[in-house]
Amino acid sequence: MFTKEFIAEKVREIRKRYGFEDVHFSIDEVIYDSEDDKLFIIARDRSDKSAIIGNSFVIGKLREKIGAKQVTVYSKLDLLIKEKRIKENIERIKGTHLEFLRPILEAELEFPPRKWPKLRDNGEALVFLSFNARAMVGFAEKAGLIPVKVGIRYTFPKWEYEEIEGSPEDVLFPDEEKLTEIAREKDLKTIISDFPFDLKIKGDIALLNPLRFLHMGFFEAKYFFGFEKPTIFDKNALIDFVVSYVCDGIMESTDGANLIWRGWRK
């Protein structure tokens, strides 16, 4: 339906019309998912990606012009890094109680688009309601796990969950020792939250951040799982949280800046 030449021409038109600098950029591939009405643009490198996104303005206008539900841009390097990490994580879960996640990892190797198999009956997992709580719970459910939700009081007032002691900083940097202790008390082998690492196995308990584990961007997770900002979090920790996600390539700097701006406006 869409060719890379057509998309490139539309991007040039938008950049020219709205006063953006005339820069050269290359598009390697365009993938259209007709089932979900999503367009994926694969740029040659990150500078090409930046030119196409145009501070989010250009890509927003492109989406309006072509009428797609969602338009996302990746660089070839983004996808190569993702592929490398996914393959490494397939090896890491071999022989562990997380081996049931292999079909999801293998599906991610075919991304884009994202088409996960339905997994069922994989037991329970402790899910700490951190900043990306929707993604954490959503991942657990799609992985065939029953989420046993715990969180700090008043963080998500509309949700039902077991309240535990903690600080606003924990919402962004979960206390792995405390959560490991709770998991042991509940006889749970998996903990899912916004950990500053992808996967850590401590004895018989696995601590998992699915966004890092799958190298899934914040923007992708927002549209795949949904997003609801917690009512309580530490503003200074938010900056460190955003910087870590941006540095690891799973959050665009513009998305990060927007999160910080909105968080500090409260």
Rank of each mutant, 00 (worst) to 15 (best):
L214N: 03
E9M: 10
G263T: 01
K76C: 00
E9A: 13
F227M: 05
A143I: 08
G54S: 09
V243H: 09
W159H: 13
I41Q: 03
E252I: 02
G54Q: 01
G138D: 08
K229I: 12
F156P: 00
E91R: 10
H24I: 10
E181D: 13
R102D: 07
E91G: 02
K266C: 08
I182V: 14
F2E: 09
K69A: 15
L105I: 07
Q70W: 10
A257S: 11
A237Y: 10
E9G: 03
V30F: 07
D28L: 15
R212W: 09
A125R: 00
R212M: 14
A8R: 05
L79F: 15
F233P: 01
P147C: 08
F213E: 00
D248G: 12
Y18G: 04
E163L: 05
K61T: 09
F25K: 01
K94S: 09
E83G: 01
D45Y: 12
P147F: 07
L39G: 03
S193I: 01
K222A: 10
F219H: 10
E176I: 11
W264F: 13
L77V: 14
I52A: 05
G144D: 04
S26L: 10
V23P: 00
I27V: 11
P210E: 07
D37W: 06
F20R: 04
R46E: 10
D248Q: 14
W116I: 11
P147N: 04
F2L: 15
T3S: 14
G67A: 12
E106G: 03
G217A: 08
A135G: 15
G217M: 01
V71Q: 00
I42Y: 03
E35H: 12
I93S: 11
I192R: 03
D48C: 08
R85A: 02
I250H: 03
Y245V: 05
L172T: 06
K76S: 15
Y223I: 06
K65F: 08
I81E: 12
K142Y: 05
D121K: 11
K10I: 14
D78G: 09
G19K: 06
E141G: 06
F241N: 06
P147M: 06
I232F: 07
L101F: 08
E64A: 12
R153W: 06
